[in-house]
Amino acid sequence: MFLFICSAIGFQSFALMYICFLHVILQKLNAMNPKPEIFIICGDLVDAYPNKFPKIRDAQIKDFKEALAGLSEEISVICVCGNHDVGEVPTHQTVAKYNKDFGDDHFYFWCKGVLFIVLNSQYYVDATRVPDLKKAQDNWLDHVLSLEERKKAKHTIMFQHIPWFLHQWYEKNVAIDVKNTLRTKQLVVYECDDQTTDVLLNIEKATRLSMLEKLHKAGVNKIFCGHAHFNCGGYYKNMEIVVTTAVGIQLGQDKHGIRLVQVQENDIKHKYFKIEDVPENINLIDTHEPKDICKETDTPKLTFNGLKMNFFKSILTLIGCTRRSPPPPVYLISFSVCKR
């Protein structure tokens, strides 16, 4: 089984929230029996952009790594690259810094006969300054999908930060109106057919459709994503896109939590849990919950879930947490059911 925690806070002043929740989540993971095989952080490992707040970013990276040092050695950690990790418009410098701090921005690995593919989704949003890196990832992906052993995989599962779509594969480009969101204190989104300088919540439609068809033809079963700060998702033919909300700031009505994914011989099941409801026995997952998929008519509202300062103080006292880090996206994966 794998665990997924998705999306950084996106608000610098609330960066401490994530690291506090991360400590609590790691305590719960360490108490699980049996333990999941993989803990996947699905992008926005830190909040501070590499080209805007380098000193704050370095401090957040330190906090992030110190927190993960408390995770049981029985659980492997996988990091996925997000827009906060390489910038909205990545450069060779920001990608190189990510590689130095966290490792490769795209790679694949096997676990118990299942193939996992990790992509840098920012190349599909804006690669104007790194066209060579995007081309290299595309060539690499074509090679991985054509591997003879991949055709024998029990499942092929993909992870990326930005989802191809939020609800439906044919939806328009969806962007956050940042100025009005900050002004009105609720999430303001709009649809557009053209490029925008605002932050996209999905990937541009023309790129999306060609990639979805390629991945579906190659036999990818599920694609797990973050970025949106609310639970949503849908299907392209029989390939499911699962978007999991943030550990920190919520832009919808979801509570802070993680997604547990149970990989079985002939099926992949997943379920979202509030942090306080994370079970000690990961084999309790029966099925994924359709209610996690937002309705097309849902308009998530910006909410801080009523968090008060005394809550932070009690958390800090409990876990001895200090300083300044944000909430990254994470998936926890366990293959305990897939051991035959």
Rank of each mutant, 00 (worst) to 15 (best):
N180T: 13
Y170N: 15
L209C: 07
V188E: 08
L187M: 08
D194E: 15
G248D: 10
M239V: 09
G226F: 01
T245H: 01
T207K: 05
S121P: 06
H216D: 11
K237L: 10
T181M: 07
T207L: 07
I223C: 05
N231L: 06
A175L: 12
V125A: 12
T181D: 02
G219C: 04
G248Y: 06
K205Y: 09
A228Y: 00
I176L: 07
Y190G: 12
Y236T: 02
Y170C: 08
I117H: 06
K152W: 00
D177L: 08
L145T: 03
K134E: 09
K134A: 15
W110P: 09
K151F: 03
N173T: 12
V118Q: 02
T245K: 04
Q250Y: 12
N221D: 15
V114K: 02
C225M: 01
D142I: 01
N139I: 14
L182W: 07
R183D: 07
S146R: 04
I223N: 02
E149K: 03
Q160H: 09
I162C: 09
D138K: 12
P163R: 02
I249W: 09
L187P: 00
W164M: 09
K237Y: 15
F230W: 08
Q195T: 14
S121T: 15
N139Y: 10
N180A: 10
H161V: 10
T244L: 00
T196W: 02
V125Q: 06
T156A: 15
A218I: 01
D132K: 11
E148L: 01
Y236G: 08
L166W: 01
K172C: 13
S210G: 07
T128C: 14
H229V: 02
N221A: 08
S210C: 04
G248K: 06
K152P: 04
K179C: 09
D142H: 08
G219H: 02
D138M: 13
V189N: 07
D193V: 02
G234N: 06
L115H: 06
K152L: 10
A175H: 11
Q186S: 15
H161S: 13
L166Q: 05
D132N: 13
C111Q: 13
D142E: 11
L201F: 09
G113V: 07
D126K: 07
I117M: 05
R208K: 07
R208M: 03
Y170Q: 15
F165I: 01
E240M: 12
E191M: 06
K185S: 12
H216A: 11
F116H: 11
S146A: 15
